[in-house]
Every structure is written in structure tokens, then in C-alpha cells.
Amino acid sequence: MLCLELWYFTAVIILVGYLKNPEVEISAISICMNFQLWTLMVSLGFNAAVSVRVSNELGAGHPKAAKFSVVIAVSTSALLGLLFMAIIFGGRTYLPKLFTDEPDVVKETSRLGHLLGATIFINSIQPVLSG
């Protein structure tokens, strides 16, 4: 799954290169992808945890405990996704300044902040469910 995700991000960067101002656009999408991958690491940690927990509970013959483990892991990951989304929404004009001083790149990255926040929230749930 992670390999396909990285190939997807690489394809996005290649497609962004065909836009009107590719230097600014590629810089902005790279900053957004950096934030996205940071938060994806948390979700992949939940993926591994829920895989181990559910398999242990199912192996012990406790299907209700396995179901409860999935519900708790998805809920926790969704709450963290909401927290990360709120951080991105609240700091979408300040966070890009951690990576660049160019005002065009900061402005373009800020414009992508809403899409980035929504993507972070959705991607906080999906890896846990696939675990």
C-alpha cells in the first residue's frame, strides 16, 4: 500500500510540472506532501497496532474484543486526524514558512491548505481500516 501511495505522489508531482508556473507549484505540492506523509506515519502506526491486536484477539477466540479494538483504533485515529486537520487549517499561512521564505510558494501552499486538511482527515481513517 505504501509503495502505491508513493507512486501516486510521484505521479502528482510530474503532472504538476505541466502547470503554468511549475517551480512554485512543485514547491507547494512538495510541502503539502511532506505534511501529508508526516501524518500518514501516525496512521500507519495505528494500522500495525490494530493488525496485531485484532489477530491476537481473534486467535484467542474473542471476536467481540477484536471488534472493540477496531472501533477504538478507528476512533482514536479519526480524532488525531481531526486534530491534524485543525492544525493545518489554523496554520495554513504559517506552516509553509517552515520550509520556504518565498512568498509565492507560501501563498500557493496556503491556497492548498483546505484540500490538504481534508485529505489528512480521510487518510487518517483509511490505513487503520485496511489494517
Rank of each mutant, 00 (worst) to 15 (best):
L6R: 09
T10M: 15
A11E: 08
V12D: 01
I13A: 09
V16P: 00
Y18I: 03
L19I: 13
P22E: 04
E23V: 09
I26F: 06
I26V: 14
S27L: 02
S27C: 03
I29H: 05
M33Q: 08
M33W: 07
L37M: 12
L37A: 01
W38H: 12
L44V: 10
A48I: 12
S51Y: 10
S51G: 15
V52S: 05
V54G: 00
V54C: 09
E57K: 14
E57C: 12
L58V: 10
L58H: 01
P63H: 07
V70S: 06
I72S: 08
A73R: 01
V74F: 08
V74W: 02
L80R: 11
F84P: 00
F84V: 05
I87P: 00
I88D: 05
F89E: 09
G90I: 04
G91S: 08
R92H: 07
T93I: 06
T93A: 12
Y94M: 14
P96L: 02
L98E: 13
D101S: 09
V106Y: 03
V106P: 03
E108W: 02
G113H: 04
L115C: 14
G117E: 05
G117W: 02
A118M: 08
I122D: 05
S124A: 13
I125L: 10
I125T: 02
Q126K: 10
P127E: 06
L129P: 04
